[in-house]
């Protein structure tokens, strides 16, 4: 990764990122799956709830992935079933990031009591294993999409609080913040102009990792029967629905499994690739 010494230009982080093979691969994979999920419904030959074939009908020319437990066209459902996976995992990861960062920064800034209280409560939540927490909340409040999304966000937020507080503590003590404070800049401005940009990269990397987790957790919930409720088409739900037919009509399970795996893989590669490249840039620039 040696660069000609003459290049004194400001490094362009975006270009650096795209130069890394892992990032490119992860990005392409993620974009492809997301595009498949978002545009898929437009190309579905049938409505996801149409009963067009026999139960667990095998793949044929008309139905490349066969039919499912009640006679839906699996291909149409695979095309239609990505939207919920994509938006639910994205929104829950973003929610966790936003709420967690806000609390983490608050803790780092406020110090003392507020800090201790926040940290202590993240301890409480971290002592609950993720899935148990989600199971309890979902069976308590129901399985509407937004409840599941919120619950997953709640499960992930304490981790973000820890992370953002830690980074912010490191930054808060640095000279430029102290200088800004001495110059009498308002705190909000310091927060948004100085601190947030410098902690953005690790948080975005964490967002990508949470996305992978969210995909796993949402499909795991659906697998246990606590996820999205039928008749909606949803990749996680499809695994659950057609699991009884796994040995008869495996395509009905493997279609969604493959897409979930690819989506998780893509986001994971992307997040880690970005993480690796940015830390390399940091090493160079320091």
């Amino acid at each position: 990764m040696s660069r000609p010494p003459s290049s004194f230009r400001k490094p362009n982080p975006l270009l650096d990122l795209l130069r890394a093979r892992q990032v490119r691969f992860g990005l392409v994979l993620s974009v492809l799956v997301v595009a498949f999920a978002l545009l898929g419904p437009l190309f579905a030959p049938h409505a996801p709830t149409d009963l067009v074939g026999i139960t667990y009908g095998p793949p044929s020319l008309d139905a490349p992935l066969g039919h499912d437990y009640i006679g839906h066209d699996v291909w149409s459902r695979v095309l239609a079933g990505g939207v919920s996976v994509v938006w639910m995992s994205l929104v829950s990861a973003v929610l966790a990031l936003t709420a967690g960062t806000a609390l983490g920064l608050l803790a780092a800034f406020a110090r003392r009591r507020v800090d201790q209280t926040i940290v202590w409560f993240t301890d409480v939540f971290l002592a609950f294993p993720d899935l148990i927490l989600v199971l309890l909340i979902v069976s308590m409040l129901g399985r509407e999409h937004w409840i599941i999304v919120l619950t997953v966000a709640v499960a992930f937020a304490p981790g973000v609080v820890r992370l953002s507080r830690g980074i912010a503590l490191g930054v808060v003590n640095q000279e430029f913040v102290e200088a800004a404070e001495m110059m009498g800049y308002p705190r909000g401005r310091i927060l948004f102009r100085e601190i947030l940009p410098s902690i953005l990269t690790p948080l975005l990397v964490h967002l990508g990792i949470m996305l992978t987790w969210a995909i796993g957790m949402l499909s795991g919930l659906a697998f246990l029967g606590y996820g999205v409720a039928p008749p909606a088409a949803d990749w996680g739900l499809m695994i659950n629905e057609n699991r009884a037919g796994l040995l008869i009509q495996p395509a009905a399970v493997f279609g969604p499994v493959l897409l979930i795996a690819l989506f998780a893989l893509g986001t994971n590669l992307l997040a880690e690739g970005v993480g690796r490249v940015t830390s390399r840039i940091e090493e160079k620039t320091t």
Binding site: S219, G220, L265, L269
Partner: peptide, 14 residues
């Protein structure tokens, strides 16, 4: 190894 990390555990089990 990234495969096992990204693919949800229950899928591996199945």
């Amino acid at each position: 190894v990234v495969l096992f990390k990204a693919v949800p555990g229950f899928v591996i089990g199945i």
